[in-house]
Design a protein around this nucleic acid. Structure first.
Length: 430
RNA sequence: GGAGGAAUGGCCGAGUGGUUGAAGGCGGCGGUCUUGAAAACCGUUGGGCUUGCAAGAGUCCCGAGGGUUCGAAUCCCUCUUCCUCCGCCA
């Protein structure tokens, strides 16, 4: 959520900077509703002030044994007026937050202009797509042939967009999680969190998935529980409603969780293989930072995610998303895209964003800088990025490291984890 | 799942309808004293919103949301969380 006061005072600037993200009409609605609300609030507070004075008068009269009937009558009348106006304020409040809830974050000045992915800017490229002496297979063929991936049985027990990993395939997924967590905790200075995989509405509201994107989520029937769509939700909300001290920032957390997404509206997209699933595993990086340091922290967070790709020797590129392609709550986002030989294209494997105070304002994440003599709590900046999406890393390895004989070489960095050099026919680790 | 109990400011803890945004203590900050520190003493010490150039003024907040009342931290209802006991369970 944007700061309504800032939006009011910088209205024209906001309109300009949000031009790729939202209809200007919505911002006009904001201004109207905000004006109406504020005049209603001013009016109601004047009435309340009057009532408080009358109540004090009653108290004084009763204490000295005088008749208080007149003041009580007047106070009662004022009370009736307040009640009436309160309903108006309540509905204006609801209207205003309804509007604020659909206004996306203001793009950072370094975010490229553009209304969709055509405005994205490639920042860098690392590694080269492997040169195959044979026609590389997509993982949905190779994985099934190796017996490490089973879609048919997954469809039987759950449905489309689910996969069963078997043998070396299951172990590869599990060890990738270990590897990523180890690198982030031991080399990059993150603390590991194992959060609930189920969250409540309030948490989803705090990070911005609700109220606008409920259709993308799985809700547990008859409860206020939702399957978490990303570890961003439980981990960012870890400090919801808390005031941190400036000295402990930045706080760097990493978490493994499965992520559950309904993928409503993505029918026909990435239908083959495990690129887009209802459940996928992910190692997430989350940071809480001081406002003045958050853009440096975005660079280092992105570098931490890139480091996993480099250690696995997977070719990738780094892309700055355009204003229109950046997600709702983010002010700036880098996507890391890994090369997939089966698809013959780069595909998103990590999305690293700085949300500035957009999530912190909703979730109530503050910090206080006592040392600097500033005792007033300010909103922290929140950031996150995948470090990495495990399922997509799995398939990137299978496709990039495939051999002419149909086996898959294990990346050097993972060999100690898998205690093997190759995934051979029949899904055997050798 | 059943039966009880609890929730007050950074922390502990008073407060059962009328200057209580909230006693007292601890902690924090500033000061006096001291070569310095400690102790002692004095002072100070939450946040949101509205309004105002500002100083200030107003309003709301005692787990959350409703209600009763001229007036609610105090009374009533619903919910949440925590604790104890019983049941079940990895």
């Amino acid at each position: 959520m944007l700061d309504p006061g800032w939006l009011r005072r910088n209205f024209e600037e906001a309109k300009l900077r949000l031009k790729y993200r939202i209809e200007p009409k919505i911002l006009d609605e904001f201004l109207d509703t905000d004006n109406n609300r504020r005049s209603a609030v001013t009016e109601i507070e004047a009435l309340k002030s009057q009532r408080n004075r009358l109540s004090a008068e009653v108290a004084r009269a009763k204490r000295t044994g005088q008749n208080a009937t007149a003041a009580m009558e007047r106070s009662k009348a004022v009370g009736a007026q307040i009640k009436q106006r309160e309903d108006a304020v309540k509905s204006l409040d609801a209207e205003l937050s309804g509007i604020l809830n659909v206004i996306p974050n203001i793009p950072h000045e370094s975010t490229p202009p553009g209304k969709d992915e055509s405005g994205n800017v490639e920042i860098s490229k690392w590694g080269a797509p492997p040169d195959f002496t044979f026609k590389p297979k997509p993982h949905w063929d190779l994985g099934v042939e190796l017996g490490i991936l089973d879609f048919e049985r997954a469809a039987k027990i759950a449905g489309a967009r689910f996969a069963v990993y078997r043998g070396a395939g299951a172990k590869l997924e599990r060890k990738l999680i270990d590897f990523m967590l180890d690198v982030h905790t031991q080399e990059h200075g993150y603390s590991e969190i194992l959060p609930p995989f189920i969250v409540n509405s309030n948490s989803l509201y705090g990070t911005g998935q609700l109220p606008k994107f409920s259709g993308d989520l799985f809700k547990l029937e008859g409860t206020d529980y939702w399957l978490t769509p990303t570890a961003e939700v439980p981990v960012t909300n870890l400090f919801a409603g808390e005031t941190l001290s400036a000295g402990e920032l930045p706080i760097k957390l990493t978490a493994f969780t499965p992520s559950f997404r309904s993928e409503a509206g993505s029918y026909g997209r990435d239908v083959r293989g495990i690129i887009r699933q209802h459940q996928f595993q992910k190692v997430e990086l989350v940071k809480f930072a001081l406002p003045e340091q958050s853009y440096d922290e975005l660079e280092s967070l992105t570098a931490d995610a890139e480091d996993i790709l480099r250690r696995l020797q997977l070719p990738y590129r780094k892309v700055a998303l355009s204003a229109g392609d950046t997600s709702f709550s983010s002010a700036k986002t880098y996507d890391l895209e890994v090369w997939l030989p089966g698809l013959g294209q780069y595909k998103e494997i990590s999305s690293c964003s700085n949300f500035e105070a957009f999530q912190a304002r909703r979730a109530g994440i503050r910090f206080r800088d006592r040392a600097a003599g500033k005792s007033k709590a300010q909103l922290a900046h929140t950031l996150n990025g995948s470090g990495l999406a495990v399922g997509r890393t799995w398939l990137a390895i299978v496709e990039n490291y495939q051999q002419a004989d149909g086996s898959v070489r294990v990346p050097e960095a993972l060999q100690p984890y898998l205690d093997a050099e190759r995934i051979a026919a029949g899904g055997r680790l050798v």
